[in-house]
């Protein structure tokens, strides 16, 4: 089974970006890696159909966030297999990155989701609403409240980053 046309490029372009968003949301580096990997596995499995979509990357993102949100991690055969395929150890996050993750962790989950998808995923409130199946006004409320609560922490995070 060779990689289908288009998948390799999508995978290379979006994997790290998606895993970074999931890490900001979940606060768990290893879980973020696993869930992003799982989402791309599913995309590969259905690539003949997904490649015809207008936004295959959006499909992968949606799947990954569904997994993260529901926390129904599918520790299935593919994941266990993949976990043995990591060729090298990758350094974990540094303290300055952890500071933002900790600040995000203080937000309610939905507010955190909106903030991460908007600021890291670069999604509009309409796109987040579409992904989450809620009204756009609801997302605006989550985002507004999340940003307001996070604002107090941002200066601390930036100070910590500049020292790092």
């Amino acid at each position: 089974m060779s990689p289908p046309t288009g998948f390799t490029e999508l995978y290379a372009t979006h994997f790290q970006r998606l895993a970074t968003q999931l890490y900001a949301y979940l606060g768990d580096h290893a879980e973020a890696q696993d869930l992003a990997q799982e989402a791309f596995c599913r995309a590969f499995d259905r690539w003949h159909r997904i490649s015809a979509y207008d936004d295959p990357a959006g499909w992968v993102r949606r799947v990954a966030w569904n997994l993260a949100t529901s926390r129904l991690r599918r520790r299935a055969t593919a994941l266990r297999y993949l976990s043995r395929q990591r060729e090298e150890h990758v350094a974990g996050p540094e303290p300055d990155r952890v500071a933002l993750v900790e600040a995000l962790a203080k937000l309610p989950a939905r507010h955190r989701l909106a903030v991460v998808l908007h600021h890291l995923g670069q999604l509009s409130t309409a796109e987040i609403a579409e992904q989450q199946g809620v009204a756009e006004g609801t997302v605006r409320s989550w985002l507004s409240r999340g940003r307001a609560a996070l604002a107090a922490h941002v200066s601390d995070v930036r100070e910590e980053s500049s020292r790092a």
Partner: peptide
Amino acid sequence: DFAARTAGTFRAVPVEAVASAV
């Protein structure tokens, strides 16, 4: 800044391994 510093800490497995897993 967070994205720039964090993205490189994630390493996708080779695409061939994805194919095998699927």
